[in-house]
Amino acid sequence: MSAHDTQHGGADDHGSHGHHVVSWQFLFGILVLLLILTGLTVYTALEVYLGDTGNLLLALFIASFKAALVVGFFMHLHWDNKFNAVALLFCLLAGVTFIGFTAIDIGSRHMVDPKRAEMMTPEVVKQARERAIAEGRLEPDNDDSANQNESPPE
């Protein structure tokens, strides 16, 4: 499967890198696996109830596995210069830090002062909305005259 390109004089001292040819059967196998996993995502999300968070985590797990297949084999990272993988790793780390710490903040606001957890309740949204309309930032619409929590007739 591996066909190293050795035409560039003296350049082939890097070990395995990008000039890596993958057989089409292998790529096709990955595609089939990805399609099966897509089906699995749809099936588990619609037919298997694991609780609110359970379904989310399962979907994320399958998606991560699919992403790993794409990154590793379609994008050749498995055979590529290891620093490219390191760059990706640090990127993911930064993303996880970003989302994680923000979620820690939002998820822990009730711990000292329960009032702070009420940040974005419908009540608060309603007040903010009324103020915004009073300031002329938002156009009032028919929802505002009716009670927002009741679904309008359709």
Partner: peptide
């Protein structure tokens, strides 16, 4: 990358503030 919350000590939750 892990210290940005110190700009928000008065805005965010107490736990996050302590960590940051």
């Amino acid at each position: 990358f892990i210290v940005w919350g110190h700009h928000m000590f008065t805005a965010q939750g107490e736990l996050a503030s302590a960590i940051f």
